[in-house]
Design a protein around this nucleic acid. Structure first.
Lengths: 197, 197
DNA sequence: GTCTATATTCAGATAGAC
DNA sequence: GTCTATCTGAATATAGAC
C-alpha cells in the first residue's frame, strides 16, 4: 500500500525551505550559502532538500518566482481603483512594506548577481519589475489625463524612479530613521506624481 | 647586491590584479569568482596572486578601499567651491560618471553581500558613503543659508536620497536610455536642492 | 557517501641589480 | 657571478553540491 502524497504538507514544506533559503541568501549571498545551511535552518536532511528542488539554482529561482502571484494581485487591485492617487498609494504602501523587511537589502543584492548568470532567474526579476513599472506608469498617466495634473517627469520615467527609490531603500543606503525615510519617500513620490506642495 | 624592490612595478601589477578582480566580482560576485579566474584575467599565476594579497577577502577589500583617496579629493574640491550649486554639480557629475560604469551594478551588489560578513569591508563602504553624504549635506545647507533658497526636505535627508538615487542607478533598475536617465536625475536633484522650475 | 571544485601552499625557476 | 625579489604551476586539503 503506497503512501499517498499529501499536497498540503508538500506545499508547507516547500514554503519552509524557501523561507529558510531566503534568510541564508540574504545574509551570505547565493554562492556563499551552502545547501547544508539551508537544510539546517529548515530542519531537514540534505536528501529531503534535493527531493523538493533539483539544484540550488532552482531554490533561488523559487524564492523570487513565488512572489509573482502576489505582485500580480497587487497590481490588479491598484489598477482597479477609480482614483489613480488611491492606486498609487496602494502601490507605494506595499512597496514600503517590503522595504521594512530586514532581508530586503541582501536579497536584492543576491538577486542582481544571480541575474547575471541565470537567464531564467533574470526573466523572473524582469517579470516582477516590468509588472510594477507598467502599473505605476499607467497610474501616473491617469493622474495626468484624468485629474489634469502635469507631471514634472514623463510618466514612464517617473515610474522607473519610484522603483529606483524603493530599491535604494532596499539596499539600505537610505538608512535614516525608518519613519523619516517613509515620510521622505512619500514626499518625493508626491512631487513625481505632480501633487502641489 | 640583491635585486632591489621596484615600487612602481609592484604598484602597477597590484592595480592590474585589482582591476581584473573588479571585473570578475562584478560579473559573478565574490564567492562566485575563483582566484583562478582572477589570475587568468590578470595574466598571472596563482602563486603571484597570493604574493600580492594574502587572501581573496583582502583583494575584495582593496578593490573598494582604493577608491577612498579619489573620493576624498573629490569631496574636498566640491567643498572648496564658493558657489554651493557648483559644488553640488561637481559631486553629481562624478556620481553620474560612476553610474556609467557597466561594472557598477554588479560591484554594488557584491559589496552589499560582502559587507554582511567582513566588518573591515563594511567599514570601508561606510567611510566612502559617509564622506559623500557629509559633503552633500554641507553643500545643501549652504544652498539654504547662503543663497536663501528653502529645501523641500531637510538637507541631511536630501543628501541621503541623492545617494539613494545614484545607487538605484547602480543597481540598473533605472535603465532607460542613458541620456534620459541623467537628465531625470538632474531634475530631481534640482528639486531636492530647492531650485525653481 | 561520492566526487568535483577551488583556496591556498610550496618547492623551485627566472631574471634584474650590483 | 651572486643574491634575492618575483613569478610559476603542480600539490594539498577542504568544502560543498548532489
Amino acid at each position: 500500500m503506497a503512501r499517498t502524497v499529501n499536497p498540503e504538507i508538500h506545499a508547507r514544506r516547500r514554503a519552509a525551505i524557501i523561507e529558510a533559503a531566503a534568510v541564508e541568501f540574504a545574509r551570505n549571498g547565493i554562492d556563499g550559502t551552502s545547501t547544508a545551511a539551508i537544510c539546517k535552518r529548515a530542519g531537514i536532511g540534505s536528501g529531503t532538500l534535493f527531493h523538493y528542488f533539483p539544484t540550488k539554482q532552482e531554490i533561488a529561482l523559487a524564492v523570487f518566482a513565488d512572489d509573482i502571484p502576489r505582485v500580480e494581485e497587487l497590481c490588479a487591485r491598484a489598477l482597479a481603483e477609480s482614483d489613480p492617487d488611491r492606486g498609487l498609494d496602494m502601490m507605494i504602501d506595499h512597496l514600503l512594506d517590503e522595504l521594512v523587511d530586514p532581508l530586503a537589502p541582501g536579497l536584492a543584492s543576491a538577486a542582481t548577481i544571480q541575474a547575471n548568470r541565470d537567464p531564467d532567474f533574470a526573466a523572473v526579476l524582469q517579470t516582477i519589475d516590468g509588472m510594477v513599472r507598467r502599473t505605476l506608469t499607467t497610474l501616473l498617466r491617469r493622474v495626468n489625463k484624468r485629474l489634469g495634473r502635469s507631471l514634472p517627469l514623463p510618466a514612464a520615467s517617473a515610474a522607473r524612479w519610484i522603483q529606483g527609490l524603493v530599491d535604494a531603500g532596499h539596499l539600505g543606503i537610505v538608512d535614516g530613521p525608518r519613519a523619516q525615510t517613509v515620510k521622505d519617500l512619500r514626499r518625493i513620490v508626491a512631487w513625481l506624481a505632480g501633487l502641489p506642495k
